[in-house]
């Protein structure tokens, strides 16, 4: 996978993880304002990184975008991505 594509993908993965972590914390601390601010900030970063990736490399999730082929299979599988 091309270096820049991998770099952008890793950014999406990092912010997606942070959003999920904050989500889980908020499940048990629904009124924690600091956690809510962190969640909103991480979500905004995720959207930005997602847009940056998709602008160059197309939809990130399987099945999104125009459908003439299930292009998902053309992407390297997770275990084929070098470390």
């Amino acid at each position: 996978m091309e270096a820049n594509k991998k770099r952008l993908l890793q950014k999406v993965q990092q912010y997606e993880f942070a959003v999920i972590e904050a989500n889980e914390y908020l499940d048990t601390h629904p009124d924690d304002q600091e956690a809510i601010r962190y969640f909103q900030n991480a979500s905004r970063h995720l959207q930005q990184q997602l847009a940056a990736y998709e602008e160059k490399y197309g939809k990130i999730a399987a099945g999104e975008g125009e459908m003439t082929r299930w292009a998902w299979v053309d992407e390297p599988w997770p275990w084929q991505m070098e470390g």
Partner: peptide, 21 residues
């Protein structure tokens, strides 16, 4: 004890460590 919101790792570190906390 109930966790309180504290420091967070930077996103890149958090993914490596498997937690933002």
């Amino acid at each position: 004890p109930m966790q309180k919101w504290g420091e967070q790792y930077a996103a890149a570190v958090a993914l490596e460590r498997g937690t933002i906390f």
